[in-house]
Design a protein around this nucleic acid. Structure first.
Lengths: 237, 237
DNA sequence: GTCTATACCACGATAGAC
DNA sequence: GTCTATCGTGGTATAGAC
């Protein structure tokens, strides 16, 4: 709405509803969440934000960079919260290594908190995030990989202590599986509708979902090596 | 394969490479695999196939339906192979329930075979498939859900026998996690590059990848219930 | 610096001639 | 079945107003 343009140089710290950049970010988060990245046009987005079409290019460069900015605004705090929570657990444990379940909690609880913060995207935003991680567009995955890099590194160290039977390489793969199941679960709850009869209200309860996911992931992480042979994964045509 | 085109005069029955529809399908599979769905334009696609732009709309309706046709051509045989393999295992086992690992094999081996069939998409096609399952466009997920429905139903029955401690609902969720980890793993091997130092050649070896994934999934499926409380998944702010 | 109007080219889709 | 021509919409670039 651009209520008024106060005095001079800076964009007026006080009273004004919001500056153009923030208005774009808010509208973008809302529309990307609702319709996805591709299906959201800059024209409808800028109309919803009440700004000019060219403002997006001026402030963010491209539509892709706008999308990254939308993700960063929520991801940075969440991943920082994960790191902080992990550090807190380590302090509380003194010198002893954390259990696998405890480390997993440090990953899942901040995601759960974000899912509950309806005012800031909520669980719908997590769906966007989960989808983004498997997006065909390379720029999205590359961006997210960089975004997650430090957090993953910290958690890998913690898991290495909790799971001494795993090599670093094996753990890397298993963390990959964990992120995959988590992203996929957060993203595609609706994909399940046709897969099986699921109580529709279950979808509203992300806490229960994570309570189902956590034991699955913990058991997978703790799995012994070498069972692969039992699987007879030999495609002897 | 469309071995030959019997009589007719139209476009030279013999020696001609292929009919228009097949040419489009082949070019589409190649380009969708290489660049993804959104990034592949019908103009470049039809140019590569050596057909007119409007031919896609004539033969397939829309770009989305063309994508579905590309997926179906590979998915139908793979899922049928999974069902057949599961049935074979059940026959070989007499009346006894199959092990969890054995059932998983019936899911993974056909995927591995497809990945190895370089002439028909190969592992690159599996990446497209994995991505599609988490795609933002609802039409893709809906299509895949329907495509997988029967196969998933069969495997759920088998898993229910192998994992008597799980309720149907709990198993449904765990199969969801399995499909998520599998899709994500097949889709985003390159997303791992920044997550950690991974041997680049590992990416070429899908068999090793599945041999890492299988024990993880088997352990997750077999995990006991009720560990959720140990995870302290209570976001007590 | 910030914002606007507008032009540009590529896209998916379609109508109608052949 | 196949083609050309064209439509409406998309992301982007820029010149110029405040």
């Amino acid at each position: 709405m651009r209520a008024q343009r106060p005095a001079r140089r800076s964009p007026a710290p006080e009273a004004l509803s919001q500056d153009t950049k923030s208005r774009i970010l808010d509208a973008a988060e809302s529309l990307f969440t609702e319709h996805g990245f591709e299906a959201t046009s800059l024209r409808s987005l800028t109309a919803a934000a009440g700004v000019n079409l060219a403002a997006v290019n001026y402030h963010f460069g491209t539509k892709e960079e706008l999308f990254q900015a939308v993700l960063t605004r929520r991801l940075d705090p969440m991943n920082q919260e994960r790191i902080d929570l992990l550090d807190r657990y380590r302090r509380e444990a003194g010198g002893r290594p954390l259990t696998c379940e405890k480390i997993l909690s440090a990953m899942l609880i901040p995601a759960l908190r974000l899912a509950r913060d309806e005012k800031r995207g909520g669980k719908e935003f997590l769906r966007v995030l989960g989808r983004a991680y498997a997006d065909p567009a390379p720029f999205i995955r590359n961006f997210l990989s960089a975004q997650y890099a430090e957090m993953i590194s910290r958690f890998k160290d913690a898991f290495l202590e909790a799971l001494p039977h795993l090599t670093k390489q094996e753990l890397t793969w298993r963390l990959h599986f964990v992120m995959g199941a988590l992203s996929y679960t957060l993203a595609g709850t609706d994909a399940l509708k046709l897969m099986a009869q699921v109580l529709p209200n279950d979808r509203d309860n992300d806490e229960k979902l994570l309570q189902r996911l956590a034991p699955f992931l913990a058991a997978g992480l703790k799995a012994p090596l070498g069972d692969a042979k039992k699987l007879e994964l030999v495609a002897n045509d």
